[in-house]
Design a protein around this nucleic acid. Structure first.
Lengths: 260, 260
DNA sequence: CTTATCGGTTCACTATATGAACCATTGGTT
DNA sequence: AACCAATGGTTCATATAGTGAACCGATAAG
């Protein structure tokens, strides 16, 4: 590991619960010599990546990060990030993948990808609007949204799209509780008949759920093996996309890295 | 200059107009050896500070910056940043300094500092609301706001606070044009009689004006020397605070680093 | 086929990073 | 007051990690 990596890795020790770190503490955390850490912090400070808080002499993250993050955000649109992950998901699962984001009160699909491995596959429309109560993406967003938003969404009339659409608020609420414990949502024929979908949540920098990553497969093709493949793919890809967009996973978000 | 600083300085070559940089170009820009730059970019990439764009092999800023910037923002409130700059301004000019930010449609003072060098000084109230048309801070914000906002503000009734308050929209519009060319606003007795104020704009990451930094002095104390001192202090401090908050100066913002 | 680029790699050389031991302060305990 | 255990910061002999000219293979243009 080069000196540069070591220095940059120091920044990784800052977190929401540990926003100020002193020299000695940083040396302990990084298991590096105090003198080494001191020189690295000095260099990081010279470039604005850390600064010393006015009061104590402890270090905290610096203003240069804001500059660079703003540039990053300007140069890499969220859509492109989602596209790369969705492409990857479709290739790995052999099924249609899509990413949707909350835009105000509605969930809008901003990108999707087909797998081209089978003749039969679920097709998508550009910029499709997904009903929150009748899609797995919607369920996942509702499950992780703040209570006020969830309540408002459940209070509206729940339109039925298929025989299997959940139109009862109480039933849906129970389902959302399941989603929160398992970390993703599953729906069969809820929005379109014979379409089986899985979805996992996406979060922003404030740990708020802002959208979902989903896989849609023909119900006929669903087997325990495919189901497991899809779940594992989603559980890896959704946190990855969250990270790419600069988001944070909430602490209560169940990480099941080795889901069977 | 240590290796870490050199590596971090590479990030500084990215800008809105140059968001993708290839290895050779980066070597040219930084006047460093290609092999050196390559190794540095590799280390930066390993830590997520840069990444290679899908298409070409060029480098762009990476996702780790978003994570860290979000943490920075969470740990250092804007108010604290403004406070440190305002304290410094008051000490350097010997007059009252304050920082105000747009909150919706009104300009609200979030922090101020007295100099304690003179018996007579301009006093402030906590969380004071400043009228946009009758303060130098307001002028500066209006001058750099988008036309729609400016137009809406000028369309309302312009209340008179003193004999010198500008209440004519046309006159005010002319004044705002001056502010844009000079880079700051000056007002005498516009809001309070015998108070002479100077203000300079503050910008966010989208180069939008979000507030102003101002110095208020008793009119009786204003001399060409003090005026020059205040202007120089503001022209240094305002961009500095903008940078501390992760903002960008607009390209058309007159930088008069050596103002007389 | 030649001649530019490009991104990336190699390896002798040396500049740079390292860390044990060292200050000077600070705050708490006896 | 004296002592101890922290803190942030510094020194300097040692050796590790960084450097850069020259190289490669690929791609594109003339």
């Amino acid at each position: 590991m080069g000196t540069v990596s070591k220095a940059l890795s120091l920044l990784g020790f800052f977190s929401r619960s540990r926003s100020l770190i002193g020299l000695s503490e940083m040396a302990r955390l990084s298991r590096m010599n105090k003198a080494t850490v001191h020189r690295m912090l000095n260099e990081l400070q010279a470039e604005g990546f850390v600064e010393q808080s006015g009061t104590g002499r402890e270090y905290r993250l610096g203003p240069a990060l804001l500059r660079l993050a703003a540039l990053r955000e300007a140069t890499v649109p969220r859509r492109d990030l989602a596209q790369s992950v969705v492409d990857d998901l479709a290739a790995r699962t052999g099924e249609t993948a899509h990413a949707s984001f909350l835009q105000g009160e509605v969930l809008s699909t901003i990108t999707y990808a087909y797998a081209h491995q089978h003749g039969l596959q679920v097709t998508m429309e550009d910029a499709e609007i997904l009903p929150l109560h009748a899609t797995s993406s919607g369920h996942v967003v509702l499950a992780y949204s703040d209570p006020a938003f969830q309540k408002a969404a459940l209070a509206t009339a729940l339109k039925s799209y298929t025989d299997s659409t959940i139109t009862d608020a109480k039933l849906l609420q129970a389902k959302l509780a399941d989603v929160r414990t398992s970390g993703f949502a599953e729906a069969l024929s809820a929005f379109e008949t014979d379409v089986h979908t899985h979805a996992a949540p996406l979060f922003d920098a404030n740990q708020a759920c802002i959208g979902a990553l989903a896989i849609a497969a023909p119900a006929a093709r669903m087997t325990p093996e495919l189901r497991s493949l899809i779940r594992n793919a989603l559980l890896e890809a959704a946190p990855r996309l969250t990270r790419l967009m600069g988001g944070f996973l909430p602490t209560d978000y169940a990480r099941k890295d080795a889901a069977e």
